[in-house]
Design a protein around this nucleic acid. Structure first.
Lengths: 102, 102
DNA sequence: TAATCATTTCAATGATTCTTGAAATATGAA
DNA sequence: TTCATATTTCAAGAATCATTGAAATGATTA
């Protein structure tokens, strides 16, 4: 992960609706959730949820696949791990006080 | 660290100038840097650097102390660690694929 | 084919954020 | 006190982002 990707990822995490969506998808497990279920779970209109889901997916933190009529969103733990690694190493220079929090 | 603090922290990290400043301060070590030196290091005007330094300091990710005429900014590794822990646990639910990146 | 369901896209509006340069504040030196 | 230095604050304008509801797209069913 480079600076540009990290900046976009942090921007994705800096909005309340998007953070709530991400946390919900992380806890949904590998089967993911449909866009409609995400919208209902976070109390957002379909169009608003779609807007934010697209913004998160753009960063790679979540993925989407169409399954017949619905679109399934899933957390992408590989990218989430890469972002954590970026924060730890690139931002914090692997400072022991931060590493010890792991 | 709660959701509100994390949202503000991620917003602080989502701007190129601020991310550059934070990385620079992390590497400056415990003596920190003056506002002027930070501005010069990241190629920003004093007023622009001051604006972004204040935004980061607001989140607690960095601290400031006046030393005679100058203001010394330092990375706050305690808060940086708390943010990492928030991301790992609250966002990622301590998912093994993310934890393994530590 | 027509109707329905799930989702996205679009345009308009409002809100927030960033940049710039000038002015203000705070500290120390002459 | 006056001047110089370091930094912040402020106002104006530009740019970006979020929300809303209506319309469009894609897929399934009758």
């Amino acid at each position: 992960m480079n600076d540009t990707q990290a900046l976009a990822s942090f921007a994705a995490l800096s909005n309340e609706t998007r953070l709530t969506i991400l946390k919900r998808l992380v806890r949904a497990g590998p089967s993911g959730m449909t866009a409609g279920d995400v919208a209902a779970a976070v109390g957002a209109s379909p169009s608003r949820a779609s807007f934010h889901l697209a913004a998160i997916a753009e960063t790679g933190l979540i993925t989407s696949t169409r399954q017949s009529r619905q679109i399934i969103y899933k957390a992408n733990f590989e990218t989430l791990g890469a972002l954590m690694r970026f924060f730890l190493t690139d931002c914090c220079a692997d400072h022991p006080d931060v590493v010890s929090c792991c």
